[in-house]
Design a protein around this nucleic acid. Structure first.
Lengths: 237, 237
DNA sequence: AAAAGGATACTTGTATACTACCATGTCTCT
DNA sequence: AGAGACATGGTAGTATACAAGTATCCTTTT
């Protein structure tokens, strides 16, 4: 797989560091659907024993980022459109409700923070940096949750909506799409700043629906990442 | 701790069986807040090695049912009211939206299923069986999610809202409360059967809010389960 | 008597050995 | 030539050994 692993800090929990690294590799596509992960090989790669590797892989399986077939092998799971749709439903439901609360609670200091993020995103869009934008996108939504007084909701969504996040990451590779997403962010922030609950919730819903619309496009542009219905079982050799 | 473990089926994944058993013990209060779990002791109890025990405990920690202090020990986590409130927010948001969909989609065969569950609950209430009712309660909400076409939402809530579920279980010990919860279930089902979206969503919201109201009562009736603010760190011996 | 210090027994984290099982390729028999 | 038995290498699941850290208690010292 020839990836360069971040060195392990032996003073901290190794399994956690491995897990973060592997999850990043999968979501950013450095580990693609179908890639084979073997406990002993990863142990060699990271220069560590199988046990922490195993714990990390178990976590990935729970996030359904990895399929573990006992006695056979493990491979990066295909993106399943059905799971993406369910994730989208959960995200939309929670986030529309949250933006409502955020708009009611927002302070002028909050607004300054939001506009600061927007300005950073503007720079990233002009620099054509999808990866940086992806991170700043997460930060924006996280900030909304914090303003609403529900910071735990975002952490729930990040751990639970991994499939959706893979699609989001892929979709941002398209620069015109990136610009559109950015415009939508501006809309939402301005609606929140204006204390306009209706406009904020509608903008947010439209925004999230457009993310969902990206699924179809991404599934065609990157078919190798997705589960193909009548595909024969992949060989693991 | 003197609990009688369910025997392990060696043909299936041991860690998973252990995890289910331990989670049940915690949610049903057979393992109380502060109870000490040690990997080697549990390994002896189940007649199995530390590795699967360890995996199960890791999962419990992710559900924040267990606090693991490296090199020190592990104990059943106290119920944190803040976490319960956040869980409640997530549950209410998702479930009110879901009951809306369920009411729109419901078929007459669905209605028969729902009324069947209600009748079983009626028997359990009369038999004063809080544990049986708890299981049937879960089943009812799960059924709503399935009717709405979002079965994955319920599995998300069960894994993610463990703290809330501990409170729910404790609250049902009060028989008059049990009866009230049952009445609310009847209301919701009849509203769904009448295809009355407004009444269904309002009944569901009221129902879930009353669960939240139980928190205060339960926190007073069972203070030993909850995190006390100015409590000194518990001894692990 | 009180406080400082260290031995001890416990904990979880990590490493490694062993087991049961599966996929694959080869070799033999029909 | 084709089909089936079988050896082989690889996998995750489990068991156990080792390491590093911490709380406790007892000893020693002041």
């Amino acid at each position: 797989m020839s990836l360069t692993p971040h060195p392990i800090d032996r003073r901290q929990n190794a399994a956690q560091q491995i897990h973060r690294q592997l999850r990043d590799w999968i979501i950013t596509g450095q580990l693609k659907t179908g890639a084979i992960l073997s406990e002993p090989r990863l142990a060699d790669l990271f220069g560590i024993s199988r046990t922490p590797i195993r714990e990390a892989m178990k976590k990935l399986e729970e996030e359904s980022l990895l399929d573990i077939f006992p006695q056979v092998g493990s491979m990066v799971a295909p993106i399943e459109i059905d799971i993406v749709r369910d994730s989208q439903f959960i995200r939309e439901t929670l986030e529309v409700r949250t933006i409502e609360l955020a708009t009611e609670n927002v302070t002028s200091s909050n607004i300054a923070t939001l506009r600061g993020i927007i300005e950073r995103q503007r720079v990233l869009v002009e620099a054509k940096d999808p990866h940086g934008f992806f991170v700043a996108d997460d930060e924006l939504h996280d900030t909304f949750m914090r303003i609403a007084g529900r910071p735990s909701v975002w952490s729930l969504l990040t751990t639970t909506n991994a499939h959706l996040n893979r699609v989001r990451y892929l979709s941002l590779e398209d620069l015109s799409w990136l610009r559109m997403v950015f415009e939508e962010h501006c809309d939402i922030v301005e609606a929140v700043a204006a204390h306009d609950v209706d406009r904020a919730t509608h903008s947010m819903r439209d925004h999230l629906r457009s993310v969902l619309a990206a699924v179809e496009r991404v599934a065609i542009a990157y078919p190798e990442y997705f589960k193909q219905e009548n595909e024969t079982a992949k060989s693991l050799s």
